[in-house]
Design a protein around this nucleic acid. Structure first.
Lengths: 342, 342
DNA sequence: GGCTTGTGAGAAAGCGGTTTCAGGTCGATG
DNA sequence: CATCGACCTGAAACCGCTTTCTCACAAGCC
């Protein structure tokens, strides 16, 4: 049944154009795609017909015939997280410059549906950009094993067939630790992100490594939202920490708000550091010390990787983009140095 | 040329599945779509084959055969504007619940390319959600005249064939004016948004109407970003206004930042009101008085409208969603009442 | 001038599904 | 026991476009 109920839109086909111009459909196609020389006068007639009939080629038919959808897919955990729109923006620009459309999906932070979503993207896109901090390794192996262009974003997993690009979370946290150590802090607390998040693991790995700077770290379970930060902030006092590091800026800002309420002065009594630099500092004047993720570059480069992946085969190593430290008003030397460095 | 270079992904077709299961392709299709009763044992064999071969139907082929792409398209002016991700999130959820994927495009605030983008969406999507505050009326007329489901978001234009839904910007600004009038303000300045923006016009229309409350309004050209607000804030002093209204929260926050720098105390010396409620107040504690746009509901309802539009024909009137006033810390009575109401 | 090249346009064969159409099997019925 | 429907299933047509294949025609060569 051709679903006669709804007059399907855009019913003018390439043959209609051909008929109107007095040529065959093949010729119309050739004119529009410029694949072969055609008689200029015919070409003109075709263009006229196209304009008059308002012809627009059916994307599905083109995709089918060409074996290319002209589309790339992006999966992100949460669109509302200010981190992603910026990435998306860059991806979208790159895709457009290559004549591709962008399909966006969101998993709502639910890793269990991500596999299906990616499969869905794969069957409707030429390539997929996957940003999934939580997806289990097994799923990743299955997906990257499929012979379908896929680039991993902000997630480096050794041994996968797919290329990957990520901000250097480890390096970013090291910058923070260095900054804190230099200020004289020794006891640091960390409001940890999602348990199974790779990005969170990277931060923790850096915190461990920072023991070399003489930092001692207490890890408090928290989450990735400002309300998590707000809720978890109360427990920082018990750790004796003079500085607080966080999974991201949202958590940090939530914590700062709570600290204010608790009468803990920032940074005099407690230094607080964010992560990602999404604090919109120019607008909201939060003055949060943090490290910045190069989100635009991340998106741009990821999209370019995907684009090359769709023509050549993959070769390269995972790419890490450096983060940058922004010292603002939320960090200061600890009030009392516990003891001078031995 | 079939582009033999790149082994096209997902080469297992429905016929392969049929062969593996010892049935015809038609039967496989019937099993997968459940259109007709098929022998249970055959169905089982088919399902096995599907699983073993990892078959996924080619979306383009399905789209072509069914005359439906299973996709809706969304065009927004700027993904990085925190307003849109929330709308998008809701749209995406609704689309998914109807088994549709979402294609996203961004015009980068450039109305001149929007027409093409929409055309592109139309030829690859079953329906289009158009959020374009700037597009000229002529373009809108052309696009809505095409026989293709399209819903207008945050833009009500009388006389168009397409259904429309918008936040009630007029009502929102009236709430603000009422609030300010009640506090005793008489002289109000407005940092105006983009010249040609419909949403901006609505706000101004409300400001005009608020003369009935005894408010006298000075309109200052500004823009839609925080840096615009920052830049334009200096001119407010010259107007004698005791309260400042803005195109949106970003502008307002930029203005507040500048006011702080200029030594103007908010709200003691100047009340400032935002618009949209994207200030992330729970995280950044900006304390900005503003009106909230029901972005989630907007996206949800718009997507539903589009969905019904794709089956039935359109009938209804434009929908306006109410805004809500949030009084926070950035508004207060004026320091000196210029003169008592006559 | 006859024959080989070269050129450009139309016919036709897919791309990978869905859906119509026709036929074959089987149970029920007269 | 022969006939008629129901009901499935496979073959074939079709969705709209691209691309190969084929062929007619014109120009170039000896």
């Amino acid at each position: 049944m051709r679903n006669p109920r709804q007059g399907r839109p855009n019913r003018v086909t390439i043959s209609d154009v051909g008929a109107a111009a007095g040529v065959s459909a093949s010729t119309v196609s050739r004119v529009l795609n410029g694949t072969t020389k055609v008689d200029p006068s015919l070409a003109a007639r075709v263009h006229d017909a196209v304009r008059q009939l308002g012809y627009r080629p059916n994307a599905a038919a083109q995709g089918l015939a060409r074996g290319e959808w002209g589309t790339i897919g992006v999966l992100v955990p949460d669109l509302a997280n200010p981190y992603f729109p910026e990435v998306l923006k860059a991806v979208s620009a790159v895709a457009r410059s290559h004549g591709r459309r962008v399909m966006v999906m969101e998993s709502d932070e639910d890793p269990s549906i991500e596999h299906d979503l990616v499969e869905d993207l794969m069957r409707s896109c030429d390539g997929v950009l996957l940003c999934s901090p939580r997806m289990g390794r097994a799923d990743l192996v299955v997906l990257t094993a499929r012979d379908h262009p896929l680039v991993l974003l902000d997630r480096i997993v050794p041994g996968l067939a797919a290329p990957a690009i990520s901000a250097d979370f480890f390096g970013g946290m090291m910058l923070i630790c260095g900054h804190l150590a230099q200020l004289g802090h020794r006891q640091v607390a960390y409001l940890s992100g999602p348990e199974v998040s790779w990005a969170n693991a990277e931060r923790i790995r850096a915190l461990e490594a920072a023991k070399a700077f003489g930092l001692s770290v207490t890890i408090l379970p928290c989450g990735s939202t400002s309300s998590c930060g707000y809720a978890a902030a109360a427990e920082v006092a018990g750790t004796g920490a003079t500085a607080l590091t966080t999974y991201n800026d949202l958590v940090a800002l939530g914590a700062v708000t709570r600290m204010r309420e608790l009468g803990v002065r920032v940074p005099e009594e407690l230094s607080v550091v964010g992560f990602d630099d999404i604090a919109l500092d120019h607008v909201a004047h939060t003055g949060l010390t943090t490290v910045s993720t190069p989100r635009g570059q991340l998106g741009r480069q990821a999209a370019e990787m995907l684009e090359t992946l769709m023509t050549e085969r993959h070769d390269g190593e995972p790419v890490y983009l450096p983060m940058e430290l922004h010292v603002r008003d939320s960090t200061a030397p600890p009030r009392v140095t516990r003891e001078p460095a031995e």
